[in-house]
Structures are given as C-alpha cells and as structure tokens.
Amino acid sequence: MINARNITLDLGGRRVLDGLSFFVERGESVALVGPNGSGKTSVLRCLLGLVPYRGEARIDGYDCAREPIAARARVGYLPQRPCFGDATAEEALRFVAHLRRVEPGRVPEALREVGLECHARDRARTFSGGMQQRLSLAAALLADPKVLLLDEPTASLDRDGQADFLRIASALRRGGRTLLLSSHRAEEIAQLTDRVLELDGGSAGPARPMAPLILLRPGRAAP
C-alpha cells in the first residue's frame, strides 16, 4: 500500500533522509520510531508531497510526486499540531468534504463520531489540544481513506486525551486501514502497530552514512 524507494531528502543544507526504502502492506499498521531529528515526520511529509525529495514514493500505486492528487485522495493525515485557521469545527469539515467530494451531510455524523457535535459552531482555535486532535481525526477520516498517516498524534495531549485518542485509533486499526504512525510513546506503539521501523542516523555526519531501516519486531522487510 505504501512503497518508498531510495528516498533522499535534504533540508537546510542537512541530509535528513538518505536513500530510505520501506514497504507497508495493505491493512498493516506500522510505527516509525527514532530519536528527534531522525526524519520520522519528514517521511510523512515526503508521502504528502510537502517537501521536495529524490527517489520514489507510492501510495496505493500512485506516485506521490507525479500523481499527488490521486495519492493524497487515498490518505487521511493527522498532524502533530492540527490547525484550521479561523474556521468553526463544522466549516473545517465542510471544506474538507467539498475538496474530497464527500456528501456534506456526512459532516454532523463525523463530528458526532469524535464527540464534537455540541461544538460544531465553535471556532476550532478555541478548542483544547484533545478536541483539536479529535477534529483533525474527523477530518482525516471524513472520506474514509485507505491510508492514515499519523504524526505523533498524542504528543500534545494530556493523559485523558491520549486514552481517548488511543481508544478511537484502536477501532480504526481493527477496521482494516493501513496506518503509518510516527511516535515516541511506547504505549501508543504497542497498542496501535504491528511492526516498528526504526530510523537511525538522521543527524549522521558525512563520515557515518545513515543506517538502513532496521526491523525491531518480526514483520515484512522492505523488498
């Protein structure tokens, strides 16, 4: 479902990803782990076309650089810091619904699913971190995407918020979606993922080439 080959990314004169290759099967749930600066978030940004990279990344067969619309139509994205500008919760979801050609009538149901139906007309920027993350999840799931990319989704949440999020995300995992999750949290990784891909050497200097992907748990290796 996700196939990355030889991805190389340079940002600000620094090599962040160096020839990275990996494969995530349909329905599989995989965690990207590694120290700060190892390039976890950058992998997700490459898949979304937010940064110019070399190499080839495909989602459901679509090239993320050459066919970005088709690739992104198959992806729901949950950023670390969700932001919806000045929009209300309902407006934010309606906008996503229009862009993804989803029936706008689905918006109230999506808000209900994440427990925000009473806050539909409130500005998203007034929400707590947990509420913003739930709204972001509703936006990511609105078009029922095949793939979910989650970037440290509980990093800014308190304990209750984390528990809430893990409950919802566990249900998603059981629903057969493909999940690629960047995370530091052992509990989140254990509960949500089948396999861990460790990125090492994001800060490697020229004398120490970036190590290839290491499989920490049994799973399918990159082809």
Binding site: L48, L50, P68, P79, P82, F84, G85, L99
Partner: peptide, 14 residues
C-alpha cells in the same frame, strides 16, 4: 507558520 497550510496541502489539491 501556524501549520494550516500543511493540513490544506495534505488534501487532494495542487
């Protein structure tokens, strides 16, 4: 700066 552009560009829009 506030991150909303990343959310927007993650949608199927060029």
């Amino acid at each position: 700066e506030d991150g909303s552009l990343a959310v927007l560009l993650a949608q199927p829009v060029t």
